[in-house]
Design a binder for these strands. Structure first.
Lengths: 214, 214
DNA sequence: TTGCGTAACATAGGACTCCTATATATATAT
DNA sequence: ATATATATATAGGAGTCCTATGTTACGCAA
């Protein structure tokens, strides 16, 4: 039994697996980014900003990407040089800036979307029910990270005030979104919805309770 | 319906989720690595080499980490300066080298294992059955990547000649490992087993068929 | 056995990531 | 008002990561 890190732990093996998949996704990101003269960090910022028409503060970019603030400043500067993002000063607070994607940035993203990525094909190879389970599991992991303040609130149904889980008896479309006022299913649960509005902690907890029972 | 990338696609949302989790793991890796004066790339190499007492070629390090060969050379050189890995020339072929972890490298890894990482706690927060499902899903994804030659063969049960899936009727321990000659369960499936020996493609396919039915 | 194509690794050059520490200019609380 | 806290920028440094190219060394054929 000469074992490096308790290999009988499911936890450890899951993290090995996640690392592997993450590695592939990172390599994938390089390929996607490279074609447009970018790198993964810059591409990530562009994609982050795509869904936020009001822009983000430098600090928000940093926390969303899990890097330090100076690093975010660095990458934003690189994108600025290329004309893909632009800074404008944020409303009242004269210290803050608002980083927004430019139309050039949007076109660049659009252009890179052509071919199917390796990650995309890999997920496609899973059975439908596996995809659904994986999505829900990821939601649970991300929610846990949010609620323990490890990462900022993500724009998921789980933390959204418009989300009404299991509001319908229809097994295919049990949930309801009060923003678009429509029923939807497990596989339609959002990870990053631009219509998201953060609910207060108490109602988040209540909603999550209901969701978990399903 | 002004949507960036077909948000109705489960595939896309899963990749959003995986990216999020990957990001957290990367940030986590920085913390783990930092305490020992390393960075994630160097830590990854050290961990890769830990399970390979015979060492790896530079090229193998590169493919296993999904980076270019010069990048692998770079990082290996950084580790060499710190005395954590050592190169010796590979047997016959005088072009090749064998990169192996030193005892200093092993101690460094051991020292960094103390505290529970964020990723670890996140996986722990999942229910047991969810952990098991996630592990199996990851195995499927990685296998798909292997079989399509996107990544080199990983040391998983799925590609191992010693793996006999569903050899027993016991629902808790249906599989059998012919290396240790013991039964084991779904949650014990290995992602990176140091006893792995690659089976030939035909028997891999047959084994996988059986495994998938379970 | 000379020679060509190929394979393994190293080097060179360059753009950037990413960190910590610190400076600068507000904002806010006391 | 004054101290403290916040948002961003700068400085400095190690190292990642790429492409392109250089060195050897292998292996097979003419």
């Amino acid at each position: 039994m000469e074992t490096p890190k308790n290999p009988t732990s499911v936890n450890h093996r899951i993290r090995e697996g996640l690392s592997r998949v993450a590695m592939v996704m990172r390599a994938d990101d390089w390929n996607r980014a490279k074609t447009s003269g970018l790198n993964p960090a810059q591409l990530a910022i562009l994609e982050l900003l795509e869904g936020r028409k009001d822009g983000l503060a430098v600090k928000e970019v940093a926390t969303n990407l899990g890097v330090s603030q100076p690093t975010a400043t660095d990458s934003i500067a690189a994108l600025e040089r290329k004309g893909l993002v632009a800074k404008r000063s944020a409303g009242t607070d004269k210290r803050g800036v608002n980083v927004g994607i430019t139309s050039e940035g949007l076109s660049m993203l659009e252009a890179g979307r052509s071919s199917q990525s390796l990650a995309e094909r890999t997920v496609d190879a899973l059975a439908e029910h596996e995809q659904e389970d994986l999505l829900i599991t990821l939601v649970k992991m991300i929610r846990h990270l949010q609620e323990t303040d490890a990462i900022p609130i993500q724009r998921m149904c789980a933390s959204c005030r418009y989300f009404a889980p299991f509001a319908h008896s229809d097994a295919a479309q049990p949930h309801h979104c009060n923003f678009v006022d429509a029923a939807f299913g497990q596989r339609d649960i959002r990870i990053d919805c631009r219509e998201h509005e953060t609910a207060d902690p108490a109602s988040r907890a209540a909603t999550w309770d209901v969701f978990q029972q399903g």
